[in-house]
Design a protein around this nucleic acid. Structure first.
Lengths: 233, 233
DNA sequence: TTGTTTAACTTTGGATCCAATAATACCTTC
DNA sequence: GAAGGTATTATTGGATCCAAAGTTAAACAA
């Protein structure tokens, strides 16, 4: 029994991100509705929202299609996240950090410190890290008071995080994952330091670099380089 | 007779931006549907989209409400546009401008030059300018090939342009408007110059400043200053 | 065999109906 | 007069029906 309209969008989004609806697959309202055992109305609303989010593409009179999200597009998305969160960090540093936000950021940092204390991560730790990470970023964006940043990120919010994590994460390589997340966590500390000291330019630059760091230990970075080279040639 | 679903969203958006639906006004699906003489289904889809765009706010079980877009929020939105279009310009300059885009940008510049030739503007000229302006910006965003920028801007796309123009434009002051748009147009020339010469950092900085220039001749800028001061105190 | 025309099917958009639920107003009772 | 409970109303979410329009496929003719 599905009560809330929002959750249907989430369900479809998860199916796309998880690959149950594979890239390039064509989706129509009626078959999808039957597949999920609900009526067309919520599917219709969800499809439109997902088009707006950039996960679906509309083929006029031929249904919808799961957009093929290339690694280059994920890199683009990370770059966008970088400039927007960089702007947020700059504005926070300029306006000054209020006490409650400062406390909450510190709590995030402490939680992260605890996770990395024993020198290794298990899969559950990674989930904890991701929650903490999301909270840390959200705190800064919210603290900026810039609602336009929030809404601009709302669209492809899931995309960079979910896709990058899905592509970058390999359960076989927990050590590499440990290094990647630990580096990111140290950057969190640096960002916090810049924010409390009102170093706005530093905060902005750190936050931009921090977005890139999401990719730094994945092989996506190489693909992006290849793309850039081919563009220039 | 309304055929296309997208147009209903546009109609409602226009009514909000124009002030026919005033800020803070509560809207429910049924009364709005009756007011427009259509059924609830398209209204439902439109309301959800407008929530996602940030123009409406949902009051659970109490309908929707037109969000009060403050001048500070418009400034925020302009800032977001600045960093995103700055990113686009930088990427275009780095990758190099292809010939067709270059030609189309030149056509925009020529069209602008013609508008400003006789030293004054009439209201129709301003509409022409806005179309040309939109095309110029869209060309650069598209040329960047960064789809994430496009979708991030899609949300509040209308907002900065429409709202700023609505607030900044005063038919009594066509001379001031002439100066504002002429300055913006000269910046277009500078952006183009940076792009064709591959000066990526300059292109990015110019594009950011260009966004601010939208406000430079309006009194919004003062309000923003006031807000910043009050934040610090 | 190929091209054109037509018919059937697919698909979306809009309208309306029903159900669930929260808010509000009213009535009763203390 | 106030407070609490109940009933009505307002509002949204989902299901289904119908119409319009485009796509596909098949059949027929050249």
């Amino acid at each position: 029994m599905i009560r809330d309209g929002q959750s249907i969008i989430s369900i479809l989004r998860d199916k796309i991100i998880s690959g149950e609806f594979s890239a390039g697959e064509r989706l129509a309202e009626i078959p999808t509705a039957e597949r999920l055992g609900i009526s067309r109305t919520p599917i219709r609303i969800a499809f439109r929202a997902l088009v707006q989010e950039g996960l679906l593409e509309k083929l006029p009179r031929r249904g919808y299609q799961v957009r093929n999200v290339s690694s280059a597009q994920i890199c683009d998305s990370v770059e966008v996240r970088g400039v927007l969160e960089g702007l947020a960090a700059r504005q926070v540093a300029e306006a000054g950090l209020n006490q409650t936000t400062q406390d909450e950021l510190l709590a995030c940092l402490a939680a992260g410190d605890a996770l990395f204390e024993d020198g290794k991560l298990v899969e559950e730790d990674i989930r904890h890290y991701q929650n903490m990470n999301m909270r840390f970023h959200d705190l800064i964006i919210t603290a900026s008071g810039n609602t336009a940043i929030k809404s601009a990120l709302a669209l492809n919010e899931h995309m960079p995080f979910a896709s990058v994590n899905a592509l970058a994460f390999n359960p076989q390589e927990l050590t590499r994952e440990y290094r990647r997340l630990h580096y990111a966590h140290m950057q969190h500390h640096a960002v916090y330091h810049a924010l409390v000291n009102g170093q706005s330019a530093r905060a902005e630059a750190l936050m931009k670099e921090h977005a890139h760091a999401t990719l730094a230990y994945s092989d996506l970075f190489d693909k992006k380089s290849a793309k850039t080279v081919s563009k220039k040639s």
